[in-house]
Amino acid sequence: MAKQPDGLVSIKDFVRWGASRFNAEGLFFGHGADNAIDEAAQLVLSALHLQPDLPATFQDCRLTEAERGTVVELIERRLTERLPAAYLTGCAWFAGLEFAVDSHVLVPRSPIAEVIETGFHPWIAPEVIGRVLDLCTGSGCIGIAAAVWLPDAEVDLVDVSPEALSVARQNVERHGVGDRVRVLESDLFDGLHGNHYDVIVSNPPYVSRSELESLPLEYHREPRLGLLGGDDGLDLVVRILGEADRFLTDEGVLIVEVGSSAETLERRLPEVPFTWLELERGGDGVFILTREQLVESQPLVEEVLGL
C-alpha cells in the first residue's frame, strides 16, 4: 500500500493533494474531467462511496485511516498506470446518467449527449421517434440515454465486440430499460436486415492511425477497436454513410460523431450536404443527414467506396 502523506485529514485536503500530484506529473485530462481538481474529486469521492454532488458542507469531513489508505492508493494508481479515472472507479456519467465502464469500452464523453437530452429536437420531433439504433454502442451509453430521455422509444444497441456488449447489458439492467432495449452483436448493419429506425446515432471509431499514435497515454488504455478508424479514420464512417439509408424510415435521420476527422470527411465527400451541429456545451465534429440526403448522396459515397 502507498505511503500516506502527513497532514491530510479532510476530503478537500485529499482533493487538493491529488490535484497537485496530477499537475506536477503532467497528467492528461479528457475522459470526463478537463482539469486536475475535478479529476481528483472524482477519485476521492468514489473511494468514499459518495456522489459527485456532495454538498460543500461535507468537504471538511475527516477521513478514517482506512479511507485515507483507499484514497491514496487510487490517486497513486492514476499517476503510475495512467488509466482514465473512469476505469479506476468503474463508472462514468453521460447525459445525466451513471454508467458502468471497464477497459473493454471507451469512456463515455460524446457531445451527442446534449442532442439526446433534447429528444433529438429540432432535427426530428421527439413524439414521432419509435425506434432508435445506437451503432458502435460500446458501453451502451448513447442508446440507453436515448431510451431514458425518450420513454416510449425502442432502442437497439449494436457492436461487434462481445466484451463491449457485456458491459452494455450491465447498463441496460442498471437503468431498468430491458423491456425496450435490445443488445445485438453485429458488424455495423450486417445483422440488422429488415429493421428500420427513426434515428440512427453513432459514435464509431474515427481516429486516424497517425493521430492515434500521437495521443496521450490515457487514450492507449482504451480499446484500440473503439478508436482506430483506419489510415484516415473514416473506414467505418464511409461504410455507415453507404448503408444507413436502407435502415432509416422515410423521415429518419442519421447522427454521427467524427470528431477530429471532420475536415478529412469533407475533403473526401465535398458534395455531401453535412449539417454540422453547434452544441452549447462544446464538442465538434457531429453531423446530421436526413434519409433523403443520404439517398441523393449514394453515388458519391459509392464512388469513394469503389462500388
Rank of each mutant, 00 (worst) to 15 (best):
A125K: 11
A125S: 15
I129R: 07
V132A: 08
D134P: 00
L135G: 13
C136W: 06
T137W: 04
G138I: 14
S139M: 01
G140T: 10
I142L: 15
G143V: 09
G143M: 09
A145F: 02
A146N: 09
V148Y: 13
A153D: 08
E154A: 12
E154L: 05
D159M: 08
D159K: 08
S161F: 07
P162H: 00
L165A: 14
V167P: 03
V172D: 12
E173C: 09
E173S: 12
R174E: 03
H175Q: 07
D179Q: 13
R180Y: 02
R182C: 01
V183S: 03
E185S: 14
S186V: 09
H193E: 15
G194H: 06
I200Q: 06
I200M: 02
S202G: 04
P205D: 12
Y206I: 01
V207I: 14
S208P: 09
S208L: 03
R209Y: 02
R209T: 13
S210L: 08
L212Y: 15
E213I: 01
L215T: 00
H220I: 04
G226C: 00
L228K: 14
G230N: 12
D232F: 03
D232E: 11
G233V: 12
G233S: 13
V238S: 11
I240H: 10
L241S: 00
G242H: 09
E243M: 07
E243A: 13
A244Q: 06
A244Y: 04
D245P: 04
D250K: 08
G252P: 12
V253T: 14
V256R: 05
